[in-house]
């Protein structure tokens, strides 16, 4: 117990505490039904339309119905958990929890949000074509490959931001 208290007093402990706090509050807000209905679902539909535009640039002839993205060859439903909001929350919480000037934080959040958006569209399009050409790999690709990449992307973006903008840590 004492060593845990000592850990919380370190820079790592303070960061982890703040990070878990921001994440918990963030995920709690996202789980609320009014937020889900008015923010998360429209956002998920927006992601589906982004992917539709990308697919149609590739000549796929895709359309969106609700949160289902379909073409004559394949269709995918984009659920909560697939819309990139989790990756954004992981990144934003990391930025907010780390000591840095607010201007740097705002810049980091805006840039990270845009990067994760682009990545998520690539992910949805890649999964769509996985379903078209190698459907037997869709499950593995969806759960294992792309979810791992989403986590790694969030961490790498956070590291890049820390390296570029964060305040140096002072230790006693």
């Amino acid at each position: 117990m004492r060593s845990f208290r000592e850990f919380l007093a370190t820079p790592a402990g303070r960061f982890v505490t703040r990070y878990v706090l921001f994440l918990s509050v963030g995920f709690l807000i996202l789980a609320l039904k009014p937020v889900n209905d008015r923010v998360v679902n429209p956002y998920t539909t927006f992601v589906a339309h982004e992917a539709r535009i990308a697919l149609n640039l590739l000549g796929e002839g895709a359309r969106v119905t609700g949160q289902v993205l379909s073409s004559p060859r394949f269709s995918v439903a984009i659920y909560n958990g697939c819309n990139g909001l989790e990756a954004i929350l992981i990144f934003v919480s990391g930025v907010l929890a780390f000591p840095a000037p607010w201007r740097s934080r705002a810049l980091g959040i805006a840039t990270g949000f845009a990067a994760i958006q682009v990545f998520n569209v690539v992910r949805v399009v890649a999964l769509f074509y996985t379903g078209v050409f190698i459907p037997q790999w869709f499950g593995v690709s969806h759960v294992f490959i792309w979810q791992s990449l989403v986590i790694l992307l969030s961490v790498v973006l956070w590291l890049m931001w820390v390296k570029r903008y964060a305040t140096p840590i002072t230790v006693r």
């Binding site: 850990f7 370190t10 820079p11 790592a12 402990g13 960061f15 982890v16 990070y19 878990v20 994440l23 918990s24 995920f27 909560n80 958990g81 989790e86 990756a87 992981i90 919480s93 990391g94 979810q147 989403v150 986590i151 969030s154 961490v155 956070w158 590291l159 820390v162 390296k163 964060a166 140096p168 840590i169 002072t170 230790v171 006693r172």
Partner: peptide, 30 residues
């Protein structure tokens, strides 16, 4: 969702804070 997605970063930073600082290139001043 929350625990599954955030545990890697939390445990990585929490377990290897000193090395993560070195990786980020942040100066650690005594």
């Amino acid at each position: 969702i929350p625990v599954t997605f955030t545990l890697p970063l939390v445990l990585w930073v929490g377990s290897y804070w000193d090395r993560v600082l070195v990786l980020t290139g942040l100066q650690v001043e005594a």
